[in-house]
């Protein structure tokens, strides 16, 4: 299990206990975290779970697949810390991770 903190565009924060193997998108959608849509249900196919990973956690989040990079390429406001939350699975090594959600997915 990992405690994951989602910080919304308006600064509001919310921390969830996410079970191992559950994606950061799935946990956010199931708990109504604002700013994440997850239209494709976690197939890395829509780029509507775009988040910015806090710099301290970027390395722990792992590397992007080719498909994730391709999908992010068409998302809005992408920066070097951008990831798709459906491609990051919770585990003990991510305990305490902080991610920022955009105002809206696009």
């Amino acid at each position: 299990m990992a405690k994951i903190t989602y910080i919304a565009a308006d600064g509001g924060a919310c921390t969830l206990d996410v079970d191992d193997g559950v994606s950061l998108m799935e946990a956010a959608v199931a708990n109504g975290v604002p700013g994440i849509d997850g239209d494709c249900g976690g197939n890395c196919a829509c780029a509507t779970c775009h988040v910015h990973i806090d710099a301290r956690w970027l390395a722990a989040a792992g590397a992007k697949s080719e498909m994730e990079a391709a999908m992010l390429d068409f998302a809005e406001g992408v920066t070097a810390d951008s990831r798709l939350a459906c491609q990051i699975m919770a585990s003990a090594t991510l305990d305490g991770m902080v991610v920022r959600t955009p105002l809206s997915q696009h």
Partner: peptide, 10 residues
């Protein structure tokens, strides 16, 4: 929102 009408992927 989880429907196919807009397609998925690139």
């Amino acid at each position: 929102r989880q429907h196919l009408s807009f397609g998925f992927g690139i």
